[in-house]
Structures are given as structure tokens and as C-alpha cells.
Write a protein that binds this DNA or RNA. Sequence first.
DNA 1: TTACAGTATGTAAGCGCTTACATAGACACA
DNA 2: TGTGTCTATGTAAGCGCTTACATACTGTAA
Lengths: 347, 347
Amino acid sequence: MSAETDRSKAGIPKLADVARQAGVSTATVSRCLNDPSVVSERTRQKVMKAVERLGYAPNFGAQALAAKRTNTFGAIIPTMENAIFARGLQAFQEELGAHRTTLLVASSSYRPDLEEEQIRALVARGADALLLIGYDRTEATYEFLRQRNMPFVVSWAFDAGHSATTVGFDNRQAMQTLAAQVIDLGHRRLALISAERRDNDRARERVAGVLAAMADTGLAPDDLTIVEVPYSIENGSSAFAQLMARADPPTAVLCGNDVLAAGALTQAKAMGLSVPDDVSITGFDDIELAQIVDPPLTTVHVPHRDMGREAARTLIAARNGTEKVSSLKLQTQLVWRQSLGPAPKTG
Amino acid sequence: MSAETDRSKAGIPKLADVARQAGVSTATVSRCLNDPSVVSERTRQKVMKAVERLGYAPNFGAQALAAKRTNTFGAIIPTMENAIFARGLQAFQEELGAHRTTLLVASSSYRPDLEEEQIRALVARGADALLLIGYDRTEATYEFLRQRNMPFVVSWAFDAGHSATTVGFDNRQAMQTLAAQVIDLGHRRLALISAERRDNDRARERVAGVLAAMADTGLAPDDLTIVEVPYSIENGSSAFAQLMARADPPTAVLCGNDVLAAGALTQAKAMGLSVPDDVSITGFDDIELAQIVDPPLTTVHVPHRDMGREAARTLIAARNGTEKVSSLKLQTQLVWRQSLGPAPKTG
DNA sequence: TTACAGTATGTAAGCGCTTACATAGACACA
DNA sequence: TGTGTCTATGTAAGCGCTTACATACTGTAA
């Protein structure tokens, strides 16, 4: 009775139907689908015709349950709203595709509780391995992963001291290098538009990078004004406006990423400020956006595609369990374009 | 033996383990997890403690197999590389989240064969409903969906003549309106940088829209030069360069979307052309990018968030099977910014 | 002819859950 | 005390697959 009313699942052909239709056993059908080489040509033809006629597709749940593998990897990224993770993820997916592995993507909206939920969802769905962004998550989450023996790699960050396998880059070092150049150009009143640092180690490290560069040249931490906002062009604009409204506005505004920098740039233009003559602005990530804003952004190039590809390879190796997997630190690179210039003469 | 060597799945706690640990039956544990109200407080405490201690998480496959539902929707989008679908998808996901439904996203790289594969993968995984982009897919794919009784909606397009439930907009009409304005401004030599039309009804419709506007004013189809490239900023740039290198370069370049237009704009700047004085450029989609390029793009605003939200509602209704679902046509809107101006005086 | 590989297929035991149905205990009332 | 009603829990039958093992053929060599 209840089966009858189950509208959505009515009449879906199953293995047994195919077997009956083809006049063979379910085992033979299963073999046809999974390892055709062990079945005779004639039988295979029969079975395939039955599959075709019935429009049969295996039930993934049952398959996973019986076979204990899914050929599915999961990735949980903080956001899909902007292109920050797009390129890397694309490369990740391409590499997986080459190994007949499907990618399932979920997003956490930068919230650890949602991330944990998504991790559990993906694990429960039988993901064979996981791609995670950054280190910040509860110990309980790590414990969960460990207990499951779930292969995962942390990406978009690199901390040699952390036990998790990582394929990423050193956010602090990258930002420090950039900030050092800014200071070198004579800027003393610095500002930073950062993503929210809570639950975001990449953002914290980038801030730390700026501070480290300042310390190197004897600048006091107080010389840095920090505004925290979620990543978005609009937030970049308003943060920039807020910064320039101060009594003692900065001569250089470093941004936690290119999206914020693009917003800052737009706002500068709206305020009639010339970049970099009146004020310098820098980005981070080197996404496409960085090249098309005017002036193009001086920023930190992150090897997105390499990172995605290498993360995939690492995970595949881990899943197969054949090779020993190890962390990989990729290099970022300072990209000089036109949004950073010498500090204006004190006026 | 083989179970022993199954490294990755060793020691994962199952319902029965929790039941044993808590000293109850598996049914009770299951009830605790799915409908706690029918279990006594004391028992629930015991069970939850056991769940906690063992780090238990249900096996999704088994659960789906036994319960015949997954509370999971799937979406297959052509690309994650740029932000075209990001906003709409985000809204889609938010709406689903409000209904305790998980979203799984896959991308097809604009290839129907990959799309079909992804559809099958998602269906096999027990997706309760699917979000699809555009109409172009093989009849076999539609037949598969129909046979499964799988609720799905087509989005990012609207064709009243098509049988599929749709939540989208009329690409042709939208582009026709824009093109009419372009022509109205005196432009006669038109060019269009389009996405590849094969397997992409949205791209074809947009081309048709331009042609329709031209026909309305007696322009011959030959007055339109079309270049087809995959969506990307770089391709927009090179297509634009190619167009302007012609003996008789266009005075207005319409682009299939904002990403291409941004590329075209960048290239124009690089070539020393002033937009819109020397040449006009228009976009389509009105993604964030459109506002931050210089000059900001005159483009077609697509109601991404509304579309995502409404698509989700439609699908939820279809899944629940309570209401009759119907298609919904949303309105686009011409956004005047600065990249479109009058045709330059014939020189 | 017999024996033995080798090959193609079938049989049936799970995989980890959910849930209809059965059962047991507590309580109220006659 | 007996009976009926609830509520809380247990029992066990699947859900749709995979795969170890059993079986039935074929062909070949002794």
C-alpha cells in the first residue's frame, strides 16, 4: 500500500528486472556492468539490450552499500559566490575526472558548524576522500575524520607545524612579502581590509604577514588600521570609504583578496581619488578580476590550478593507499601591476 | 580477509554498535535519530551518549536504501569557472537549506554527454529533484528523467512551447530589447561575441534576439559579424581584437555575457580605443563584474536570485507532490550604464 | 574414455539501515 | 483483580546491489 503511494519511486527498474528481462541471474547483470570482460559476448549483448530497454541505472546507495566504495570525492569550500575557489576547484575536478572519480561540492558559508555538517553529509554519502580549505575547524571535526580514516587534504594554506596533509601556500609569507614592498615604497600609514579573522586562518595569517613586515622595519602595529568585512566587492567599497574618512587616512590600503580590492578601487574612483597617485591599493589571489579593473591590481599570485591538481593527485594516492602521501608547499608570487605606487609626498 | 585489508572502512561504527553500546535495539537507535519524540528521555540520553562516544554517523547509502528518500537535490551547471551561475545557485541553496534539503552541485563543462553522466550520477545517488540549465539535451536524457519520474526544472531560459517545467527568462526577448537600443543609437555595423551555440540554447536565443532586432529595422543579417568563443575574459579580449582588425570594424560589439564583455573592454583599452566614443560594448547577465569594469557595462539584468529561489520552491513543491507545479517566466531588465553610446559619426 | 583445466553462469549471503508489527509494562477504571 | 489503553521497546523483513563460492559446461590431453 505505502509502496503504491510512493509516487516518486514507482516503477524504477532494478537489477533483478534486467536479469529477468535478459533471462540471466542478477550476478551476471552485475558483472556485465562492472567487469564485462568476464561475461560472454552473447550474454552481454542480451543484458545490455535489457538495460537499454528498461532504462536501468544502478541504485547508488545499494551499490555503495554492497561494494563499500563510491569513486566520489567531496570538496567543501567556504563560498561559491565569487571566483576565489573556482579555478582551483576546476583543476581539482579535471584531475579527478581523469581518474574516473566524481566530485561533489558543498559550501559552508565560512561557518565551521555548517562545514562540519557538510563534512558529515559527504562522509555519510560515502565520499572516498575530502578536500578542505584551511585549518580552522573544531577538534571534534578532525577527530571525526581521523576516526573514519577518511583521507583529506587541507588546501589554500600551509602550516608546516600542522599534522594534516596540506597542499597549499604560506599566506603569511605571501602577504609579508607584499607588505614589505609597500613599506619599501615609502608608505607609513597602512590600512588593511581583511576578511573576518574568526574561523579563518588564511585571513589571520595574512594580517600577521602585514604586521610582520611592519615589525621588520620598525613600524608599530598601531600604524595599521584594520577593517574586517566579509568578502564582497561592495564590502570592499564601503570599507575603503570608511578608511578614507578617518582623520589620518592611509596612503596604502592592502586588501585581503582581489574582490575586496576591486571594491576599494571602484570606491576610490567614485571619490575622485587617483590610484596609485593618491592612494595605493593591493589585492591577493590574482583572480581574473585583478587584471581587468582599472588600474590592474598589484597582487599576490596564488597557483590555483596547480594547487587543485596537486591536491587531487595527493588525495587519489591516499585513497589508493599505494603511495605515502605528503604535504606540498607551493610558491606564491608577487605580481606587479599598476595599483601600487610610491607613497605620495607628505602634503 | 579482504575485509581486513579494507583500510579505509575499518572500524566504522554502525547502528548496531551504538545499539549494543547503549543496551537497546537498533530500532530504538534509529528512532532516536529520526524521530526522537517517540523515545523516552532516559533512553535517548543513553543512545546519544553512545552515538557521541562512538562518533557514529549514519551510512547514507543504507539509509537511502531503506528509507527511499534522501532530502538531497542536485544541480548541474555548465561551469563553475566564472560567476555566471553563482548568485542564482546560492539563492537556490539558501532556499533549500530553509527546507532541510541538501544541495549537490556538479558541472558539465557545457557538454551534453557529461551533463547526462552527471544527471545519472545524481539520480543514482538518490537526488529527489534536479535543477538543470537550459533546454539543450538529448531526448534520451529527457526520457530517462521522465521514466524515473524525477522532478526537475529548467532554468536560465524560457520557452513557452517546451514541455519541461521552467523557471527562467526569455533570452531572445532580452537580447532583442538591448539590440534594438543599440540600433536606435545609430549603430549599423554590429558584431556579436557569442558563446558557442552548439548545445547551448541560451546562446542561440541571444543571437536570434540580435537578428530579430535587426530585422525589425530592415538591417540585413549580413550586417552582423558573429564570433563564437567559450565564455572567458581572455576569449572576450581576443575575439574583440579579431573583430576590430577587420576591414570594416563594427561600431558596436554586443557580447553574449558580461565576462566576454569585460574581456572586450580590456582589449579596447589596450588598443587605445575609447568606449563608448570609438566603439560601444554591451554585456548580458549583470553580474558584479559589470559594475566594476571601466566604463561600467550597459547590460541585461537577469534576476539571478529570484530565479534560484523560485526554482527551489518549484522543485520542493514538486517533490512534496502536494501542489501542482507550473512554469514561471521572470523579467529581465535593461541596465543603462556607460559602455553603450551613440554610433560615432561616419569618418 | 577419463580426468582436469578453464570458462561462463547461478546461488545466496550479506552490506547498514528503516519500519510494520509484536510485545511488554504501566496505569486507570470498573 | 481483571481489562483495556497507552507508551516504550524489540523483532525481523526487506531495500537493491556485489561477490565468494558452487555448479555446469567445453575442450584437451593422457
